[in-house]
């Protein structure tokens, strides 16, 4: 039951929770359970900054089943204000409006719905910064 597997991930998926190294300050998303990759230091959970800029992106035309009705959709490679890099879907933006370098902010959206059970999975997406 993927609903259960994904329930376990909800907090970091909803709230942009990552790991920060107490030693060198490196950050990771999704959070790591082990040690810092750069210095081996201890990691602690941290709420990452909600703003960042777009480093690269793609527009997905051939989608997996769960995202079939979302196509075409945009996935971005994003650098947050503190330097954390992550992948997330972009929303409220059309393919012809996307630009590398654009300012983005995190929001919560529906990721997908399980067809048979109807279970909705929510998670962080990024949209062009408002205001």
């Amino acid at each position: 039951m993927p609903e259960i597997t994904e329930w376990r991930d909800r907090i970091w998926r909803y709230r942009l929770i990552g790991s920060r190294c107490g030693g060198c300050g490196s950050t990771y998303y999704p959070p790591r359970n082990s040690r810092c990759l750069k210095c081996g230091g201890d990691l602690e959970e941290v709420e990452l900054p909600r703003r960042g800029k777009l480093l690269s992106y793609t527009v997905v035309y051939q989608a997996p089943t769960l995202y079939k009705y979302s196509t075409p959709y945009i996935v971005g490679y994003i650098e947050l204000l503190d330097g954390t890099r992550l992948f997330a879907m972009l929303t409220d933006v059309e393919p012809d409006e996307v630009r590398v370098g654009m300012e983005l902010e995190a929001t919560l959206r529906k990721l997908y719905t399980y067809g048979e059970s109807g279970h909705i999975v929510y998670g962080v997406k990024f949209r062009p910064a408002v205001g």
């Binding site: 690269s56 997905v60 989608a63 997996p64 996935v75 490679y77 992948f87 997330a88 879907m89 990721l111």
Partner: peptide, 12 residues
Amino acid sequence: YSGLTDAGLAAI
């Protein structure tokens, strides 16, 4: 969770 496919990651 990001909707990224293998081709999507390669495209990025």
